[in-house]
């Protein structure tokens, strides 16, 4: 079996206990995806599977045969940053950097969820168009803990990208 990670095929034939997170970090040397808690409580391991953000620590690699995974390494490179990556640098949306790849993957998915009109807990109306107010962004990014406390700048970075895209 194999997973398609950032457009490349990676064979998996290991211990079925291997989480997608450990497969990425150990077997594929894609260490941009971080292990912060290993129990779905921090969001540092957020990746996109078939376009949706998930906690890669709480799923097994073996469950994703043939599926498409996008990690932070698949978004941009140092010489060719994704707009979100560039905005995080500009707005200092990070400090130690450990939660950052998860934040950025999460933000990317969030913008698409909003474009698809997915509501959130703080949405006043469940019908109608989703408008990403700062509070909407905060709620939708609350699955990504940042212990350094860069939240205010993270929101600013996302707002900038969002406004540029509109």
């Amino acid at each position: 079996m194999a997973l398609i990670i950032n457009g490349r095929e990676y064979a998996f034939e290991g211990d079925p206990r291997t989480t997608l997170l450990d497969f990425l970090r150990r077997d594929c040397d894609l260490t941009g995806t971080k292990k912060g808690c290993d129990h779905g409580q921090c969001g540092a391991c957020t990746v996109l599977v078939n376009g949706q953000r998930i906690n890669s620590c709480l799923t097994l690699a073996v469950m994703h045969d043939g599926e498409s995974v996008t990690t932070i390494e698949g978004l941009g490179t140092i010489d060719d940053l994704h707009p979100l990556q560039a905005a995080f640098v500009k707005h200092d949306g990070y400090q130690c950097g450990y939660c950052t790849p998860g934040q950025i993957c999460s933000a990317k998915a969030m913008l698409e969820e909003a474009a698809n009109n997915w509501p959130s807990f703080v949405s006043e109306n469940l019908s109608g168009e989703t408008r990403l107010t700062p509070d909407e962004i905060r709620e939708r990014m609350s699955g990504n803990l940042c212990r350094c406390g860069a939240y205010s700048n993270i929101v600013d970075a996302i707002v900038e990208v969002m406004e540029r895209e509109q």
Binding site: E113, S120, S123, S142
Partner: peptide, 19 residues
């Protein structure tokens, strides 16, 4: 059934709810 949508959205996070 907005109470159901609201309840689901009150739980966990987008990442967890996607799985």
């Amino acid at each position: 059934y907005p109470v159901l949508a609201r309840a689901i959205l009150a739980g966990a996070t987008f990442q967890l709810r996607n799985k």
